[in-house]
Design a protein around this nucleic acid. Structure first.
Length: 318
DNA sequence: CAACAGACCTGCATGC
DNA sequence: TGCATGCAGGTCTGTT
């Protein structure tokens, strides 16, 4: 599901599309998706509008124009935000499959209806994701409770990383990179990519890493995340994981101006040809059994580190 | 506080 | 074909 680059891509696209539109109606199809009282949620959002969108790690923060609240959205593993305009569908989040090309669908949990049939759909197969209102004054506390500095913020410095890793001395580097309390934004894909980029085995204990190696990790985090954002994030199409289905060439964020019937016929074309799909830039994640792109000798292995599927080259990661 | 297992949910691929 | 199992891009919570 979405990690920092995917969420940032969603943030940018939604900021372009949904700001300052009046929310005429709020539809809550799965009450559990709303953390807090559904009645309050509907009341605060109806007639309101979104003045801006921020992000902290993988958390989206919608700035509501009226009422002094922020709307927090977390997509967790399978959440998607789909914006439907009169002419286009804009996707962001979990991978896109055929069933997603129509909204609402069986995974639609919440819908914010704007005027003229425009709408923002929150879809979430596994229902881990949530939408939650918090009072502006409480935002800092709510965020700080779960998240350390954002990996792309200016506050994320090499010094910060050195210090954060000292607190996680006995665990694996992969577990430390995944821990949002120290550093917010890195998930399973980019943790593997950062380890590969720096030639470190994901199960290496943090206290065996030198100061200069941590400096390399710091640089790799910024480089890998920024490159992923440049390419619109990583989303696996159904075709990548299963050859049985047609390939819809979608990135972490997809957009099309074609009618829905054309999507379904398999004629999907990206409206913005400049945006690629970061899956083609992944160097180690999801490459199990393939030759290592760096040393050309090792075969990418997969095991379990920090209870997550973990990819690495035994030959050139130490 | 750090470290780690269990839980939360649903769908899909795989293997018997 | 049916059924069981394991796996999935995340993070809360509870235990030690």
């Amino acid at each position: 599901m979405p990690e920092l680059p995917e969420v940032e891509t969603i943030r940018r696209e939604l900021e372009r599309d949904i700001l300052n539109q009046r929310i005429g109606r709020v539809e809550v199809l799965a009450a559990k998706t709303i953390h807090g009282k559904t009645g309050d949620f509907i009341k605060q959002l109806t007639g309101n509008s979104i003045a801006g969108i921020d992000r902290w790690g993988k958390l989206l923060i919608f700035d509501l124009k009226k009422g002094g609240h922020k709307l927090l959205i977390h997509l967790k593993m399978t959440g998607q935000l789909v914006y439907k305009d009169t002419k286009k569908l804009v996707f962001g989040g979990h991978n896109i499959s055929e069933s997603d090309l129509v909204v609402p669908n069986r995974f639609t949990r919440v819908v914010l209806h704007f005027s003229n049939h425009k709408a923002l759909y929150f879809n979430d197969m596994r229902r881990f994701g949530f939408m939650k209102l918090v009072e502006e004054a409480d935002l800092g506390g709510v965020v700080a409770k779960s998240y350390g500095v954002d990996a792309l913020s200016p506050d994320f410095t090499e010094k910060y990383l050195q210090k954060a890793l000292k607190k996680r001395a006995k665990t694996t580097i992969k577990a430390a990179l995944l821990d949002q309390k120290h550093l917010a934004g890195i998930g399973n894909i980019y943790a593997d990519e950062v380890c590969f980029a720096t030639g470190i085995l994901p199960n290496r204990r943090v206290n065996t890493l030198s100061v200069s190696k941590i400096k390399e990790i710091y640089k790799a985090i910024k480089r890998v995340l920024n490159l992923a954002i440049k390419h619109g994030g990583t989303t696996f199409t159904s075709a990548r994981r299963s050859q049985a289905k047609p390939a819809y060439a979608l990135a972490g964020f997809g957009e099309a101006k074609e009618a829905q019937s054309q999507f379904l016929a398999g004629h999907f074309v990206r409206s913005d040809g400049a945006k690629g799909n970061f899956t083609q830039y992944l160097k180690v994640f999801d490459r199990t059994g393939q030759k290592c792109l760096r040393c050309k000798k090792g075969i990418i292995q997969k095991n379990r580190v920090a209870r997550r599927g973990t990819h690495f080259c035994q030959k050139c990661q130490k």
